[in-house]
């Protein structure tokens, strides 16, 4: 299992590097090398580190533990073909982790970043509506059942495209520089990350790497189905490039607009799922 975790971490960081590269090229910049995020993580790990004077020290350190722990757990759940409700639960917990990162230091910038991450909670509601849409078809939320269902009936991407779109928005809301990334607005310095430096920041990169892999992998598993390893890698890279294009070509919304848009999407999804449930599921 250790090789899988390391591979997922490395791959996730490379994907994030690719994201930066694509965004830079769209903006006619050369951009950093693809392995830049990995270099960052390594660099931060070998920096002298301490806990700020004003911080709630146990929380400050413990939240890094929680952050890494939950994403390792999420990866294991994906590997084992476990329940997607757990994965999405962990996805939502990422918000708490960001919140904890921000608030535990006592820094005003961290605090505002944390509060923004709480506001971005609206992005989670479309998630559950799409989960409901999936469950209507597959009658199970275990990843292996969903994959087995798709092996018979074809990818869910074609069966429930709106659910895939909603989940795509969810992925987008966790991408750096995306339209819903209110947590990372430039007026907040580094937002919730401001005070976590040194190996704490390296831990954040570990979280980000694992998170990217887990979320993209889950998306591919849920909406496209089982593939050979090389297939997974190719599809995830393509997905990442699509996400990067979306991020680069859309403005960052204000927190209010972001919440409004996501609530509207949720409403549309609710109507859609209601229609499916009312008409009865084919097959």
């Amino acid at each position: 299992m250790i090789p899988e975790i390391l591979a997922a971490l490395f791959f996730g960081l490379l994907l994030l590097g690719l994201h930066r590269k694509v965004v830079a090229r769209i903006q006619k910049r050369p951009g950093p090398p693809v392995w830049q995020e990995f270099l960052h993580a390594a660099k931060f790990f070998w920096k002298q580190t301490w806990v700020p004077k004003t911080a709630s020290s146990l929380m400050f350190v413990g939240i890094v533990l929680v952050g890494i722990g939950i994403w390792v757990a999420a990866l294991l759940v994906v590997i084992a073909g476990g329940n997607i409700l757990i994965i999405f639960g962990i996805y939502m917990l990422q918000k708490i982790v960001e919140h904890g990162f921000g608030l535990s230091s006592g820094s005003p910038y961290g605090k505002f970043g944390g509060v923004r991450s709480v506001i971005s909670a609206a992005s989670e509601i479309p998630l559950f509506v799409s989960v409901a849409a999936i469950a209507l078809f597959t009658h199970s939320l275990a990843l292996q059942d969903i994959v087995a269902y798709q092996a018979v009936h074809g990818p869910l991407l074609l069966i429930v495209p709106p659910a895939a779109f909603a989940m795509f928005l969810v992925l987008l809301s966790k991408m750096p520089g995306g339209p819903f990334s209110v947590v990372e607005g430039k007026e907040l310095v580094s937002g919730y990350k401001t005070e976590h430096f040194g190996f704490f920041r390296a831990g954040l990169y570990v979280c980000d790497g694992l998170k990217t892999t887990v979320l993209l992998w889950t998306f591919v598993l849920v909406f496209i189905g089982g593939l050979p390893t090389a297939g997974f890698i190719i599809v995830m890279v393509i997905l990442m490039i699509i996400l990067s294009f979306t991020c680069a070509l859309t403005p960052m919304l204000t927190p209010f607009d972001s919440v409004t848009l996501q609530t509207l999407v949720t409403g549309a999804m609710l109507v859609y799922v209601g229609c499916i449930a009312a008409m009865g599921v084919p097959g």
């Binding site: 790990f45 070998w46 920096k47 002298q48 580190t49 301490w50 806990v51 700020p52 004077k53 004003t54 911080a55 350190v61 890094v64 533990l65 929680v66 952050g67 890494i68 722990g69 390792v72 230091s105 006592g106 820094s107 961290g110 401001t194 005070e195 040194g198 190996f199 704490f200 390296a202 831990g203 570990v206």
Partner: peptide, 21 residues
């Protein structure tokens, strides 16, 4: 995570006075 943090502390924990945020 425990391994990660403990390794970080073992190698790179600051010796001097803590910082203000």
């Amino acid at each position: 995570p425990v391994f990660f943090l403990a390794a970080g502390f073992a190698m790179m924990a600051g010796e001097g006075e803590e910082d203000d945020p």
